[in-house]
Design a binder for these strands. Sequence first.
DNA 1: TGAACATATGAACATATATTCATATAATAC
DNA 2: GTATTATATGAATATATGTTCATATGTTCA
Lengths: 132, 132
Amino acid sequence: MADEPQGAKLDTEAPRCDCRVVHKDRVERAIARAPLPEELREAGELFKLFADPGRLRILAALAEGELCVCDLSAVLGSGQSAVSHQLALLRTARLVKNRREGKTVYYALDDEHVKEILRVGLEHIAERTASS
Amino acid sequence: MADEPQGAKLDTEAPRCDCRVVHKDRVERAIARAPLPEELREAGELFKLFADPGRLRILAALAEGELCVCDLSAVLGSGQSAVSHQLALLRTARLVKNRREGKTVYYALDDEHVKEILRVGLEHIAERTASS
DNA sequence: TGAACATATGAACATATATTCATATAATAC
DNA sequence: GTATTATATGAATATATGTTCATATGTTCA
């Protein structure tokens, strides 16, 4: 808990911070156990897709079953173009898949984790709201 | 699966979409079961905090134990100011808490869901990487 | 073939976000 | 008190993101 001897040549990489690293052991452990930068980057991209109410609503709706773009547009109350753009993002990330049936394109979830991520996020909100 | 009779006055709200609602039943069910707009908004805000590699790294590091700002700066390899700004966001959302000990401020996770959300997200990345 | 419909997509624009710089606050040592 | 260290924060800037508009693609029907 107390201060480390300071002269230590740790610096752990570059002189990126204007303060001295206070806890060499903790820092090294955190770096050692941290997920790879690439994993963090990709996880960030994933969470970004969940970081919009419209997309969340799309995903929640699809969790109940397949819907076409027009249905989704009605559910969201937003324009077809906006929905298509959002769906394109979700499709690129393989969170949803689509199939065409005549003029209509049906979308469905394409990833088992989607429901779980939704659940955890909404659970958090519910509990926070309850306890605050 | 086929088209509905079209004259139906559903419109489910406003003429927000240029196409006709194709599946009235599905749309109504989706709307009925959807989380409240407010919940979706807040969940979006939550996921936004996980939507940045730097913040993910902060959260992952704190999952291993308490760290001070300077430690985090070293772990991330980014400047103290940037880290403080990120911590302010996480603090506002009550995902982390802090305590002061002299000049040093220690941060720690303040929410049981953080680890779970991190886990689910990273799990998704790992499995996707494995199967793609 | 052409008209109507469902969806997709590029460009433009407005807003949000992350970082940096400069500076403020808080605590300790002298 | 002043100097030093650790952290916080406002302003500015560059980048990212979401929506809209216009238009393109693909399908069905007459």
